[in-house]
Design a protein around this nucleic acid. Sequence first.
DNA 1: TATCATTGCATAGCACGCTATTCAATGCCA
DNA 2: TGGCATTGAATAGCGTGCTATGCAATGATA
Lengths: 142, 142
Amino acid sequence: MSFDKTRSAGYLTNHLARLFARRIQARIKPLGLTPGTFPAMLELWTQDGLSQGELVRRLDIEQATMANTLARMERDGLIRRLQDAQDARVQRVWLTERGKALQNAAVEQAAAVNDEALAGLSASERQELIRLMNKLVGELRR
Amino acid sequence: MSFDKTRSAGYLTNHLARLFARRIQARIKPLGLTPGTFPAMLELWTQDGLSQGELVRRLDIEQATMANTLARMERDGLIRRLQDAQDARVQRVWLTERGKALQNAAVEQAAAVNDEALAGLSASERQELIRLMNKLVGELRR
DNA sequence: TATCATTGCATAGCACGCTATTCAATGCCA
DNA sequence: TGGCATTGAATAGCGTGCTATGCAATGATA
């Protein structure tokens, strides 16, 4: 039974994810951000005050993972967690001023990494790659 | 500054990597394997007795990560590490009988996950996706 | 040959992903 | 209204990735 790693979507995805993480890590470290916080920050920059559960659903991250990530973000002064007034079980997540202020610089760095990765591709190749990756996500999310 | 996560190669790659990992984890757990061991096992099934450094170079994994992964693999009876006869610094990695015996079943499961992910794609789309992903890897590895 | 740089690996410490488990708050229904 | 199921979150434990650091073996050189 043979297996060519350069022809396996799963293998390539894992390798690519590590390469992306290394690059983004290097670029956002000076901002006081880490790669794992990025998805949550993106959601909160778009809509502040989401509940933890809402973040879990939007980001397709396990609840326990999100709880840990949010704890680190709170420790690092990016967010605050406040109990919801209507439902005492719900923790709402609010950006601090510092967290809000990072948006432009952080998004800029992320965009730069994407540009580096896609440098060798034509516009239509980029579009096709994104389309196909979205299709895989849809397939695997069921 | 806006950022569309469904159009970011990095974001999609991270999401896809998590989805792939969940699937492969579920499938190879019964074999006593974990996703992180897979790349090393693939290399060793192809060529047994590689040094740790050789694995690091082939898999583009940090040396410390590989040392940890190999320690778990040894603990779990997949490999043994023996000092090289010529160079006492070198640890050569050898599959156990159990490690060797897992090849067919493990590769089968990995192939099945790839098939699930690519189910919605035509043959030419699959080929194109693999080609583009390899291009990104090449770009980001420099 | 004594010294110093290089190489190969291990360890510490942490980020971030997962499963399993627990607990409190809420909702529902007899 | 009392009892039970559901929901939202925290915690424990572990795999897998990283950087930083240390150390022993080897190689190179004055």
